[in-house]
Design a protein around this nucleic acid. Structure first.
Lengths: 240, 240
DNA sequence: CGGCGGATTGAGGTCACTCAACACAAGTGG
DNA sequence: CCACTTGTGTTGAGTGACCTCAATCCGCCG
């Protein structure tokens, strides 16, 4: 069965700079430790929460990789984001006290459970925490603006280039290579996120390979020409 | 004989239910009046704030109609939303202390300026306000999920139908007709929001007219068959 | 080894785009 | 009052990017 919940502290977590406010004093840091009630492990393929479930907590990803997706009544669904270590998920649930999207682990994962009532309580007392919560939500809004721009005005090549660059950049800030990455999601999931069909994603990858921009072996991607990818992203009609 | 000037406050504002928390007691209500520092009038066509400007306040729309848009370096831009009375704008600015999008008045407008530091201060003391701020931000995140779904997986007719239904529904909750509306934006702005070209928007409107779903005379739209529009939105091709 | 999910590639179709002409309303100045 | 402009909206013809359908391939795992 599940092992007994392990008491963990933010104050000694190496992801602290990613998911918690910085510049706290000793006492504030210890108070923040109380926010994380438990950790929870999620097996690859299973959900952290589903559309319709009660909202009780935000989750900070400790390890692993997630996708979030929304669905229409008629069954279509749309991946709204991919999340990795240090990122916060569950913000969608605040407004109606239940979640409006599914969050699925794309590899075995572990999250810190932060009960939202406790988070609100403490952020009334610790200004830095309050500010942090606001910034986390605002960041998500800005991120989604970027996705809307991508979906609304870019062509396939631009979307995929932007996607790869974004992923590798985020991985880089987490200490990984800035030129190599392993995709944790299928072509279909990439396509759903980018508003493309999986075949188009595949073809576009192949085109990048032909042009010498990347090497692709299944889910392993090596970027050969970062600047070339950037040029694709911000030039509506690549003139070469 | 002009009536004595009535000080406009949140506590006697008829939009209170839309932009402020409900269920406050007398004392809390008066404290909230202090949030609104000033009001600001914005002429049609001019901006409330621009990408890059310092973030200092959120704005509650009292009257008028806005669009927000983001832009790429190479000049393309994307309308990320249309906002009307009672809605809150400026949330994008919180994360980096400066705004990352433009907000333009599509008709003469007036907003309540709510300095964000004061809002944070008061929401540390008034729980209902804190909760409200969180919900406003979460609502924006959920709204954007919906737009991503629209941009990522719907065809032109579905997008436009969803757009019109959304607009008229929001107008209806503000006391306007649920079957008639005046578009405050151009076809091009609608297209930018929906990820379509203006010609496609125009053609799709014409198609709706042919099918007897709506009447369109320039920017005046009368909905003849709400159910028909809804059917277009969630069952265009429900085969998967 | 065979089966299976995921990825690639090809051929053909279609929806939305591009380019272009025209319509229409409101405003401006003669 | 009209001619002219300007901004906006409509419509048509042709094109192209992406989709659909289908076959095949690859890596993984029992």
């Amino acid at each position: 069965m599940t092992p007994p919940p392990i008491k963990v502290t933010c104050s000694n977590c190496n992801l602290r700079e990613l998911c918690m406010p910085t510049g706290l004093n000793e006492q504030q840091l210890h108070r923040i430790d109380d926010i994380v009630a438990t950790r929870r492990k999620i097996k690859r393929g299973s959900t952290l929460f589903r559309n319709g479930e009660d909202f009780t907590a935000l989750y900070a990803i400790r390890t692993g990789f997630f996708k979030t997706c929304v669905a229409t009544e008629d069954g279509r669904d749309q991946v709204t984001g991919f999340q990795m270590a240090g990122e916060i998920i569950g913000l969608d649930g605040i407004v109606h006290d239940h979640h409006t999207c599914d969050t699925v682990a794309l590899e075995d994962a572990e999250v810190c459970v932060m009960p939202f009532d406790r988070l609100e309580e403490l952020s009334r007392e610790v200004t830095a925490l309050q500010s942090h919560v606001h910034k986390v939500m605002s960041r998500e809004i800005v991120r989604e603006h970027g996705v809307m721009l991508l979906l609304g005005s870019m062509r396939a090549e631009e979307r995929l280039a932007a996607f790869v660059l974004n992923l590798v950049q985020r991985l880089h800030t987490r200490g990984f290579s800035s030129s190599e990455l392993v995709l944790r999601m299928t072509r279909e999931e990439i396509g759903s996120y980018l508003g493309l069909k999986l075949e188009t994603v595949s073809r576009t990858f192949s085109k990048f390979v032909e042009e010498g921009l990347v090497e692709v072996k299944q889910r392993h991607v090596r970027i050969l020409d970062t600047e070339g990818l950037k040029r694709i992203v911000n030039s509506q009609h690549a003139c070469e």
